[in-house]
């Protein structure tokens, strides 16, 4: 058995003295698809953003491919160098709620940018790769449009192609459909589903509980500043053991007709 792709050990984060979570331990193996659920404010997104150090954890360790990121300071805190973070982020792709496409670049250049600048791949080769990633998300014909001409769903699919182009070992999705018109949610979910079927490793923060149930191999429910309940989708979503999970599911089911 090889070592896990990603390991979080005792991760803790607080903002200005207010604790978001503490003592998070999580192991992600190749092919795992983990859906992170929780009430708003439970720290789901913050946890995801700590994985690639968009937020610096206050304590705890992140290990990728069995290797701990960062180096111990004399004070005991971890320090992350820019080079380390760049390497980490090439292995960990991320898709944002607000897409965050680069508005001054065409769709193809959005996808090719990381290949050219970060991986140093020649322009024409990077473009070829970008177009094939766009094909995968069904947007090859939009390659030369600017992002401002795309719908929200199309923008998010481009953002997914941009993350895929870097060949990440693991993909982070931060509420990828929350900013979308209800009518556009489906096209994005089906792209994510297709990636799941390919056996990609991913962490997904979402409000789409039904989608999480079908897609995830494991559910992590965050509450009270930590992992409150975890297990298979059937365990956690069909037979929740603990009161806050039950409450959360009951609240959400109220709106399912």
């Amino acid at each position: 058995m090889s070592s896990p792709i990603l390991q979080l050990n005792g991760l803790a984060k607080s903002f200005g003295g207010i604790e978001v979570f503490r003592n998070i331990d999580l192991e992600v193996n190749a092919g795992d698809r983990i859906a992170i659920l929780g009430a708003s404010g439970s720290g789901k997104s913050t946890l995801l953003r700590c994985v690639n150090v968009l937020e610096t954890p206050n304590s705890g360790e992140i290990a990728v491919d069995g290797k701990t990121v960062g180096s111990k300071q004399r004070s005991g805190a971890l320090k992350y160098t820019e080079r380390e973070l760049c390497t980490l982020r090439q292995k960990v792709g991320m898709v944002f709620q607000q897409f965050n496409l680069f508005p001054h670049m065409t769709v193809a250049n959005n996808v090719a940018e990381g290949l050219k600048v970060v991986k140093g791949i020649a322009s024409d080769k990077a473009r070829g790769r970008a177009v094939s990633e766009l094909q995968r998300v069904g947007l090859a014909e939009k390659a030369d449009e600017f992002p401002s001409r795309l719908s929200g769903g199309q923008k998010q699919r481009v953002a997914i192609a941009r993350a895929l182009a870097m060949d990440p070992e693991i993909l982070l999705f931060d509420e990828p459909t929350s900013a979308l018109d209800p009518a556009l949610v489906g096209e994005v979910l089906s792209v994510i589903e297709q990636l799941a079927n390919e056996g990609r490793t991913m962490l997904l923060v979402t409000h789409e509980i039904g989608f999480a149930y079908h897609m995830a191999t494991r559910i992590v429910f965050l509450a009270e500043g930590g992992i409150y309940e975890t297990g298979t989708p059937d365990d956690v979503l069909k037979n929740p053991k603990r009161p806050l999970t039950q409450q959360f599911l009951a609240d959400h089911q109220r709106f399912h007709f």
């Binding site: 982020r89 965050n100 496409l101 680069f102 990381g114 870097m166």
Partner: peptide, 23 residues
């Protein structure tokens, strides 16, 4: 420039000077 632009450039592994110059 919105925070999301900085983050999007960071998560594809750009260094500070690359993201400044390109994004």
């Amino acid at each position: 420039i919105e925070k999301g632009q900085w983050e999007a450039a960071r998560v594809i592994g750009m260094t500070h000077s690359q993201l400044m110059r390109r994004i």
